[in-house]
Design a protein around this nucleic acid. Structure first.
Lengths: 146, 146
DNA sequence: CAATATTACATAGCATGCTATATTAGTTAC
DNA sequence: GTAACTAATATAGCATGCTATGTAATATTG
């Protein structure tokens, strides 16, 4: 029922996540990128040569999820894996030239999708909204890890 | 990077959606229900005998997504489908006795998951948070449909 | 009324997410 | 130095979500 649904911040957030995913996917599609690929790239643009485990942590997904995303990124020519000289169990993930060239256009495309979310609120409320989202996340994380 | 990430309401909302999904899934698991099943049930508890199309609209997912969810719900003995006397193309979706019996416990379990999200904010801020979420959704929806 | 369009549902194919588990490589403790 | 633990990946299996497309039934139109 509408009343109850609007009382559930979880369901509302899920709805935003779905709509945002669609907007981000739509903005990235002309570049041949998917949402999960973009999120991985956005960490690798900051620091290249990470291990899978570190990358998964920074993006905030499970290792198995990142492993699958990396398979698709390797298939699509976005990354290469090289042995980690310090540890035979892990590999370093390096961006290809193609991935480097996508940084500016993909960042712009994602910024547009992010703007679509923010523009639903007057500028004066946006900082508070971010802060609320962050506090809700922090609380849910403490519960998860307790 | 943390700074940039916290500037994206979309990514923050996605994070809440994931954490909420995990909490809801965890709360429903002892009842043998999944999240998507619960969302479908919560509409059918309000009105039984809906068509697939109507149910998908009310839950807010695509028809194909609901079709798959209904396959799993039928498999799990939660629903039965009967021919629609008014329209040979569609079927009516009816809850089983088992599904009716789950209404109270599942509603309680979901309420607990919802409370986990809300409790990240002081009571005084919660109404505003709901209203912000709703406004962001409304804006994203107008973009989508334009 | 026959041709066409629309509607309801099913299905295929894919991307993301998860948990659980196997494998392999380091590390630690006797 | 070997046995046992831990850590990094890989893989299997599943649930949800999407788009695209096929099929059958109903509605509309000329």
């Amino acid at each position: 029922m509408e009343f109850d649904r609007n009382r559930s911040a979880g369901i509302l957030a899920s709805e935003i996540a779905r709509l945002y995913a669609a907007a981000l996917q739509g903005a990235l599609h002309p570049l041949g990128l998917s949402r999960a690929q973009y999120l991985a790239l956005s960490e690798l643009w900051l620091e290249d040569g990470l291990t899978q485990r570190l990358l998964a942590e920074r993006v905030g997904v499970e290792q198995a999820t990142m492993a699958n995303t990396l398979v698709r990124m390797e298939r699509d020519g976005l990354i290469e894996r090289k042995p980690n000289p310090d540890d035979g169990r892990s590999q370093q993930i390096w961006l290809t030239q193609a991935a480097h060239r996508l940084q500016a256009p993909a960042t712009n495309a994602a910024a547009k999708a992010n703007e679509l979310v923010a523009e639903g609120l007057p500028v004066a409320e946006r900082e508070l909204f971010f802060s609320m989202l962050a506090r809700v996340i922090a609380n849910l994380r403490t519960i998860r890890s307790s």
